[in-house]
Simulated assay, not measured.
Amino acid sequence: MKSRSEHRTLVVSHDPAWPPVSGADLRNVQNVQAASEFGPSHLVSLRPHEADGPGSKAFTVASLIRRDDPRRPAVNRPRTRIEPRISAIAIERLLAEVDRFRPDTVILEGIGLQAFIEPLRPHVPQLVLDMHNVESDLALQVGAGALRGVAIRLNSSLLRWHERQAGKKVDRIWTCTAADRDRVLSRFKRPIPLDVVPNAIPRFHEIAASLKDPPADDAPPSILFVGHLGYAPNVQAAVRLARGIFPLIHKAFPRARLHLAGRHPKPLVKALADLPGVHLHANPLTLEKLFAQASITIVPLRAGGGSRIKILEAAAWGIPVVATPLAVEGLELEPGRQVVVGETDKELAQMAIDLLNDKVRLCSQRDEARRAVCDLHGPEAIRRAVGLGLGLV
C-alpha cells in the first residue's frame, strides 16, 4: 500500500490556472498545492498555458490544447452554457498525461468538464468531481428576473441531470461549503463520499503577520470590490455597488472613492469608471496596494456559487466586510461581529456609513474576521481538507 508521501494527484481545469487570476484559478491551485504535500502533483488545463513545465516548486503544468492546433471535431455536444467544446486531440493528450504521470487520483474542475469522465474512468484508480459551484443552482440565481425564464429553468434542469449522471461515475465529490454538500447529497439515490474542501485564503504568504493600522480619521474612505469582472454575478454586483450603493455613501463622505478591480471587465463595468468617485483597475498585476489602502469592502452579490474568495482575502488582510447574506453563505462568519450583512442597497450603504464612522467597531470586526478566516481557511485547514478529500487523512 502506498504511503501518503507517494500519492500522485492530477488536477484538470478548464482555463490555465497558473499563475492564478480568477476564483476558479485560485481554487485549482490551492487543490494542487495542498495535494503536493501528499505526493507529486500535476495541473493540466484544457485551454493553453503560455508554456508547459514547472508551475511552482510544488507542481508541474501542462495544456491539452495548443494555439497552433488544427481545428478537430468535438467529441462532445455541449448542451449547457458552461460546457466547452472538447476535441479528440484534447482527450488523446489527457490520456497521454495520465499514462505518463500515472496519478492515483484525478480531480476534475466542475461539471463543465464531464466529457472527460468516461475516457478517464478505466485509467484512474480514484476520480473526484470538484463542484466548486453547484451549477444547476447558480444558473437559476444568475437568470433570476430574466425574460428568458423558461430557457433558464431548462438549462438548470439539464445541469442538474448532468450532475446526477456524473455522480454515478465518479468516486468522490467535493464542494466548497457544507450547505452545497447537503444540497448535492440530497440529489443522489446512492451513497457517495462527499467532502467539503473550503476555498483557501489566496496568496496567504503575502499577508502580513500583524494587521496594519486603520486609516486615519481624516483619510478619504476607500471602498474596494475585487472579482472577475467578466463573470455575470460579479458584473451584476459591481453595477449595483457603483450605481445604487456608492452614491449614498458618497453623499455622506464626498471624498470617498470606490475601487473596482478584476480581470476582463465587461463594457458594462468599464462604463462605471465615468461615475463620480469610481475607479476601475482592469487586470491588475497585484492587489497588494489596493488591499493596503482599503477602508472596507462591500460585496452586494445576488447570485453566486461556492464561497466567496474575495471575502476571505479581504478579511485576512484586515478589511472589514459589508455583504449580502448570499455573499457570506458558507463562510461561517458571524453577522454583526465578524461581518455586516444587509439585503437592500439602502441597508448596505447605511451599514457601511455606520462602520466608517465607528473606528472602535471597525477595528473589532476586522480583528474577529481575520482570526476566523485564518483558522477555517488557512493553509493547515486546507491541507487537512484536501487530505480527507483524497481519502488519505
Rank of each mutant, 00 (worst) to 15 (best):
L388M: 03
R85V: 08
N155I: 01
D171A: 06
L154P: 00
F38C: 07
L280W: 04
L326K: 13
P40D: 11
G23H: 06
P70C: 05
G304Q: 11
F204I: 15
V75K: 06
G145K: 13
A273C: 12
A166T: 13
S136G: 09
L388S: 11
L43V: 10
L159G: 10
P247R: 07
I82Q: 10
L241H: 08
W317N: 13
P198C: 10
S41P: 06
E109W: 01
L43P: 10
L326M: 13
E288Y: 06
R27F: 02
T175Y: 05
L356W: 02
L392S: 11
T60E: 14
E343C: 01
P233W: 05
L138W: 04
R383C: 00
H132P: 06
D69G: 12
A34M: 06
A232D: 10
A273I: 10
V32Q: 13
G306K: 07
G318P: 03
P84R: 13
E329I: 00
H7T: 12
V128E: 13
Q30H: 13
V235L: 06
S3I: 05
V128C: 10
A372K: 08
L280Q: 02
T324P: 01
I353P: 05
G110Q: 06
F116M: 08
A352Q: 14
L64G: 03
P84E: 14
D345W: 02
H279F: 07
E288A: 13
S3N: 14
E332T: 03
N76Y: 13
S136A: 13
C363N: 15
P70E: 11
H7L: 09
K57S: 08
V124Y: 03
F225L: 12
T286S: 15
A349I: 08
D15L: 09
R243N: 14
L127D: 01
L248M: 12
V269Y: 03
I173A: 11
S364Y: 00
E347G: 06
V128W: 08
H14E: 15
E163H: 07
P265Q: 14
G112I: 01
Q293N: 12
L129M: 14
H123M: 07
E206K: 11
G342A: 11
Q338F: 02
S41R: 06
L211H: 11
L158E: 15
L333G: 03
P233L: 07
L356D: 15
R371V: 09
G391D: 13
I89G: 02
P198S: 08
L290M: 08
A261Q: 04
V322S: 03
G378I: 04
S87A: 15
L140N: 07
D130C: 00
L390Q: 14
V269P: 03
C374L: 11
V322Y: 03
E206N: 09
H250V: 00
S36W: 02
Q165S: 06
V226S: 08
A273L: 04
V269K: 03
G39M: 04
D68T: 14
L287D: 08
E50Y: 00
R8F: 00
R203E: 12
V142P: 02
A303R: 12
F291W: 13
R181G: 07
G262H: 05
G330D: 11
H132L: 05
L211I: 12
Q293Y: 04
W174E: 08
E380N: 07
P73D: 15
K212Q: 13
